[in-house]
């Protein structure tokens, strides 16, 4: 075992890729939100209902913006970890990812049981958060 916990290349790529995907999705949702448009949903319905629901913002801040901020921070931490191999960014991403996972879990609960509509973008975003956290958690424990 080496002292450095620089992640294996594949792990770093996976974690950074997931964070980048989350950033892209939340950026798209942020842009449509700020432009006052509805996210394109394709054949799947539900985006409109979720995007226009009262839960789409908290304290006047669109949830999409919070997601974008979150993904950018995770992306920065993962990159810092991959470059330096130092533990603090990895632990930061792990802890923050855990918080993020709980929040997206709660938002998905709202979609399913309160708004009764599921937004594909939001589910995809939630998947990037959960998978990203799983990758980071696996890497720091091994």
């Amino acid at each position: 075992m080496t002292a450095s916990i620089r992640p294996p290349r594949a792990i770093a790529f996976a974690a950074a890729g997931l964070a980048a995907a989350g950033t892209a999705i939340s950026a798209y949702l942020t842009i449509t939100r700020l432009a006052g448009e509805l996210p394109a949903c394709g054949p799947l319905v539900g985006c409109e209902q979720v995007a226009t629901s009262e839960y789409s913002e908290v304290f006047g801040i669109p949830v999409a913006v919070l997601g974008l901020g979150f993904s950018l921070v995770i992306l920065a931490l993962v990159l810092a970890w991959a470059r330096s191999g130092r533990r603090p960014p990895a632990l930061g991403a792990y802890g923050l990812g855990l918080i993020g996972m709980m929040v997206v879990g709660y938002l998905t609960y709202l979609e399913l049981f309160v708004i009764h509509a599921v937004c594909a973008w939001c589910v995809a975003y939630a998947a990037t958060v959960v998978l990203g956290w799983a990758v980071i958690a696996w890497a720091i424990r091994h």
Partner: peptide, 11 residues
């Protein structure tokens, strides 16, 4: 510790 703190913050 981080896990506990994160769970508390998440809630």
């Amino acid at each position: 510790l981080i896990t506990i703190v994160a769970v508390v913050l998440g809630f």
